[in-house]
Design a protein around this nucleic acid. Structure first.
Lengths: 342, 342
DNA sequence: AATTGGCACTCGATATGCCAGAGTGCTAAA
DNA sequence: TTTAGCACTCTGGCATATCGAGTGCCAATT
């Protein structure tokens, strides 16, 4: 990380901020006029030239203004960006928006994602609380007819999944008792992701009677516990990227990329820190070369367990995005934690 | 409905089909070459001219080929379009795609919608089974901690909704009994849409003891029963419209329109027939003037109760869209019906 | 009377050339 | 080291010319 002169820093910061605001390459003249620097445009030109050669700025064409390179954004984010608190308006929007979802972890996450997409005008991704903590806490089977029952599964992080299932014979106390015994001894307390089909087979094989009744029930458990993980990752506000003129018609392939679960999951998961920022090609995926990804983790009961993310053009307003995300993920973690308290 | 000569019908049908395939205006020469008509281009030109004046065809500009007008599309779907069965490939895709969701009404609807969007490359909308039939069948409250319980609500059409709720005092048998009494006397058997906040107030007021415990529980019931209706309408595959070059940058306002629940619901609901097709400005909403909407109802237990719809450019492939929808909605109705059988 | 070949015409799409403006790099002076 | 000045470059917009697909119409043919 080479050190830059004070003036170079000032110029770089101004270029980044002006470009983020306007979307137009910024020239030497425009820069001094709207940044109040007390030197002439020629001086700025010289400095810009050096910043250019050092790789912090680039010119779209020979005779246009400068725009930040990825290295420029990186330097800005790491060293120059002010770390303000979220502005009052956004804060109110978040508080008001998330309030109706209080008490329900899944709703909270969904609401947070929607808010984030609205506020940043970018795509937003949420992952549900997960981790070693996400263990199966309760499985209930409520008969609703002679041959049908609804099964409900709850994990320790408050994810609730339910579905109907049918069995061939009638429901009766014996069957329910048998089922609850199996649940008690094999499922409760286990991480929900670890219920593999193979394991279901094993358990089913150990059933002594009513095999053909238990099998569909066990399959339903497997399905439900799997789905607590499946839907961990949700993308919202993808349409926001379309209105952004930054991506011309590149928006469509990008959206297609984001709509695939696996690579998106990879992108989110590869972030280690509480707050991680990947700019352009730092993202490894070719499809994200013009985009930046900001991932902020939230913690439930003191454990890092889920995340909210923003995906947008490299030209996104990092400062406001990041301040909003810090506030929102902190709030989200606290609200989920309190929803789970007993 | 004026009668057209055989040859005019043939020409109109060919123009529609060629335009649907290519997206380019079709000229007299191209038409005879790829339709095998045994007359000259000049003859076709004369006929086209008449079709033009009758309002079935339009020219984008004076010296381009013809494209169908709305009236042209309308005549085509009413009188000229072949009514083929769904093709084998699509059929397999549907069968294979929907199989994993069998047994769960909500999943079935979601899966059907996703399949429809994939197959047609258009936006797809689903509405869950609803109607007088959609009554509350069961409400369960399962304690999961001292102060929290999960509440699960099931309607007669198989919609299952759940959420966590907290109360201030401890759960005990008395409270559960009281709650189930209220449920039994006020909720079971009622249409889920008819639980208004006002009604909740009235019921709460009639509670003799434990008022502050019952209130949040009743609120949760209201929330859940409301949400069985809220999420009736789901849009999927909106991104498909973007890849369609038909809408240039008109795709964005269209998507914004489709993302609003109320007008979209209006659009879907205004269809009476089992299968309804609205072309362009037949849709009343200005935002849909370049789009067609096809709505196909599916029936559960013999009653018309939900629908799947396709929204795409007026230039959509009506024949294949409609054959797929007929097959899919029939299948969907049957699968949901059998999932609900006991 | 219907069909057809021929022809002039229209108009979008594409390519070309030109101009203005914004911004640069460089040089020489302060 | 900074600044003013100047020549240069490149984009974007605009007008113009050209090309070609497709039409409408007319006269000739069946």
């Amino acid at each position: 990380m080479p050190e830059l002169s004070e003036r170079k820093k000032q110029i770089l910061a101004n270029v980044v901020e002006m470009y983020i605001k306007s979307g137009e390459p910024v020239g030497s003249k425009g820069l001094i006029s709207s940044s109040g620097m007390n030197c002439s445009s020629a001086t700025v030109r010289n400095e810009m030239n050096e910043l250019d050669q050092m790789g912090y700025l680039v010119q779209p064409h020979t005779s246009a203004g400068r725009i930040p390179s990825e290295k420029g954004y990186r330097y800005y984010v790491d060293n120059l960006m002010p770390r303000r608190d979220v502005d009052e308006f956004t804060k109110r929007m978040i508080d008001a928006g998330i309030a109706p979802a209080a008490g329900d972890p899944e709703k909270l996450v969904n609401r947070a994602r929607e808010l984030l997409a609205d506020i940043t005008k970018c795509a937003a991704v949420s992952t549900a609380p997960v981790g070693e903590l996400n263990i199966i806490r309760k499985i209930e089977l409520v008969p609703v007819g002679m041959h049908t029952a609804m099964m409900v599964l709850l994990t320790s992080n408050g994810i609730l999944k339910s579905r109907l299932c049918r069995i061939e014979s009638d429901f009766n106390v014996t069957i329910l008792e048998q089922f609850y015994n199996i649940v008690e001894s094999f499922f409760i307390g286990k991480p929900s992701g670890e219920i593999s089909p193979a394991e279901i087979q094993t358990i089913a094989a150990s059933v002594e009677s009513n095999y053909f009744v238990m099998l569909p029930l066990l399959a339903a458990v497997s399905d439900l516990s799997g789905s607590t993980n499946d839907s961990k990752l949700i993308l919202g506000g993808g349409a926001n990227l379309l209105s952004r003129k930054d991506y011309g018609d590149k928006a469509i392939p990008l959206l297609e990329f984001l709509n695939k679960k696996e690579p998106l999951s990879e992108v989110i998961r590869s972030s280690k820190d509480d707050l991680s920022i990947r700019i352009g090609s730092e993202n490894l995926f070719k499809q994200l070369e013009d985009s930046s990804v900001v991932v902020s983790k939230y913690s439930v009961k003191g454990d890092n367990s889920g995340s909210i993310s923003v995906i947008g053009p490299t030209r996104m307003d990092y400062e406001s995005v990041i301040s909003s995300m810090r506030y929102l993920s902190d709030l989200l973690g606290r609200l989920i934690t309190s929803a789970l308290e007993e």
